[in-house]
Design a protein around this nucleic acid. Structure first.
Lengths: 139, 139
DNA sequence: TTTCATTTTTGAAATCATTGCAAATATACA
DNA sequence: TGTATATTTGCAATGATTTCAAAAATGAAA
């Protein structure tokens, strides 16, 4: 489901974030991507389109979005962070062989499973699964 | 539930890992700790007891244990890794304010919630929750 | 026990994703 | 237009983790 630039822009404004050219481009890229890009990937993808872009800006902007709850940061791979603009409730699987990270649907929200979570204010939840993907099992 | 050194030693042997002095000490420390230590913390805690110990050994050994499935590695904090010797099924919560990482019990195994996971071989699962802990909410 | 091969440990240097910083640029508003 | 504020930029610094080759420990065979 493609979202228009205008809608994304409004979403930034609603979150109290000024929609600069760089911010809007980065937001659009992460939201439309299905591939959990790293900051480096976002940077490489947008530097031509934007004429000039700094990797520092990408890092700062992604952090800004994460803090605002607009995207999430994944630490499923311990060697780098990547980002996820998909707002639906889903788990992540990382293949130990090929490194691929894929979304897996959930039957229900996993927060409901937590016991003794009373008194905690939970703002983010991530379920990380690791192992072998179907492609790598075949080989 | 305190486990004897002999039992831990046997567990290493059963996993095909030679129980050197360093390995056994590191294994015991991580298994008995309730505090999700980092490699650095393990190193600081054991260097005196062992006379000499290298941080590299700690890193290598922890990786060895993780690969053997004896302990798990947590990446809930994006700035460092920590390790968990608690083998029961539980979730982890990280307070965004004080940084504390605590265990939270689960009603059931969360893998049962995953849809479309057929064809995947899952060897590790971690549920990470973030937000504010009761102590930090009070303030 | 001695010897030799293999495994493990060690410490220093290198790596690399991420952040700090201060200058340059862009934007909003009077 | 001018001025204050917000944003971007690039380079240097940071720090957790890894690489690497040498030293030490261990196990098996003689």
């Amino acid at each position: 489901m493609k979202v228009s630039r205008a809608e994304l822009k409004q979403e930034l404004i609603d979150a109290g974030i000024r929609p600069s050219v760089q911010r809007l481009a980065i937001f659009e890229y992460v939201r439309q991507s299905c591939q959990h890009p790293t900051a480096e990937v976002v940077y490489e993808a947008l530097r031509d389109e934007l004429g000039s872009l700094s990797l520092t800006t990408v890092y700062n902007t992604l952090k800004l979005f994460v803090d605002a709850g607009l995207i999430s940061m994944l630490t499923i791979d311990d060697t780098f962070r990547c980002f996820d603009g998909n707002r639906s409730c889903h788990a992540h699987f990382r293949c130990n062989n090929c490194g691929k990270i894929v979304d897996l649907k959930m039957k229900e929200d996993f927060i409901s499973l937590v016991e003794g979570g009373d008194g905690y204010e939970i703002t983010d939840a991530q379920l990380y699964l690791k192992g072998l993907c179907p492609d790598c099992i075949k080989k």
